[in-house]
């Protein structure tokens, strides 16, 4: 009995010493990582402070931002509320028109991008196309379309198509063709190939194979991605106007540049309400699609 306990103690001691050793090793390793992270982080931080032009003077000047926001609060008096709101939204009818334009810009852009993305996504799916070069070409086209931000396209298109909603539509359409095309082709790559083989075995050509074998499988996913994209595109459409590409952004740009403080808050509130409304509608639509009837 006693010898047993003794032996047990020895192994325990060995085990604890082994454990300690192992633990110290781990800790040392971790300490190295910690030091490396801290050094890298501090370097990036200092670099950013210097190059980002963050000076004490600018930080101390930040309360000016508060004053700026305070300026945008309109004067609303209880006894003349209707009149005050009327003054605040004096250009309300014009803004509503621009807000509608914004939604239509996003709608047209989404419509165009769905068509393009639909067409390009099939040759950009590895399982549906045999030619590697066509596959890579389509993938690269989508990548490039996606990688350049909407605002950069908008700037270039404003130059080519002159000011107005058209460059906005095209800018958003090109960018979202890239995003949607990539999402669509990823959906295509995850389908069951049995249906495709079935259509092929009856002698269907490539287009028929896609139309009858792939599209019925992927359509529900396409629709839910499209609704999400429409929501995103409306948000984008509110800002392409800042570079002159139509919509409510153009009005906001003018108001901010001309220091029309009350107009800034009025337009911003309209944009926020639009975004809230959008979130709500999009959520409703997607829920209905998931739980309910087949819409298409």
């Amino acid at each position: 009995m006693q010898t047993q306990e003794y032996q047990w103690d020895i192994t325990l001691g060995l085990k604890t010493s082994l454990f300690e050793e192992q633990r110290n090793k781990q800790l040392a390793k971790r300490r190295i990582y910690t030091v490396v992270w801290i050094v890298l982080f501090a370097a990036a931080f200092l670099f950013s402070l210097v190059i980002g032009d963050v000076t004490m003077e600018k930080i101390l000047n930040l309360p000016a931002a508060w004053n700026y926001l305070k300026e945008t609060i309109p004067i609303l008096r209880m006894n003349s509320l209707g009149y005050d709101v009327g003054v605040w939204y004096a250009r309300g009818d014009i803004w509503v028109g621009h807000l509608v334009d914004t939604i239509l810009i996003a709608f047209l852009a989404t419509f165009l991008s769905v068509i393009f993305a639909f067409v390009i996504s099939f040759p950009a799916s590895r399982n549906l196309i045999r030619s590697t070069s066509v596959f890579f070409l389509c993938r690269r086209i989508l990548d490039i379309a996606r990688a350049v931000p909407e605002m950069v396209y908008a700037l270039l298109f404003v130059f080519a198509f002159s000011l107005g909603p058209l460059p906005g539509v095209l800018a958003i359409a090109v960018h979202s063709t890239g995003s949607l095309g990539k999402l669509f082709s990823e959906v295509n790559e995850n389908i069951s190939m049995e249906d495709v083989e079935g259509i092929k075995s009856t002698g269907g050509n490539w287009v028929q194979t896609i139309w009858f074998g792939v599209v019925p499988q992927v359509l529900p996913n396409y629709i839910s991605y499209t609704i999400l994209r429409l929501e995103w595109n409306i948000r984008a459409a509110t800002v392409v106007g800042l570079v002159g590409a139509g919509g409510i952004g153009m009005e906001l740009m003018t108001a901010i540049r001309q220091f029309q403080f009350k107009q800034i808050s009025a337009i911003t509130i309209m944009i926020i309400l639009l975004v809230f409304f959008l979130d709500w509608v999009s959520e409703k639509l997607r829920h209905q699609l998931i739980g309910g009837e087949k819409l298409i």
Partner: peptide, 25 residues
């Protein structure tokens, strides 16, 4: 969140002047 980063940037350019500080804010 409803106000786009670009719109905030425009306002901060008015407050803090041109330059990266407005973008950071």
């Amino acid at each position: 969140r409803g106000i786009n980063t670009l719109i905030w940037a425009l306002m901060f350019v008015n407050v803090a002047g041109l330059g990266p500080f407005a973008g950071i804010m």
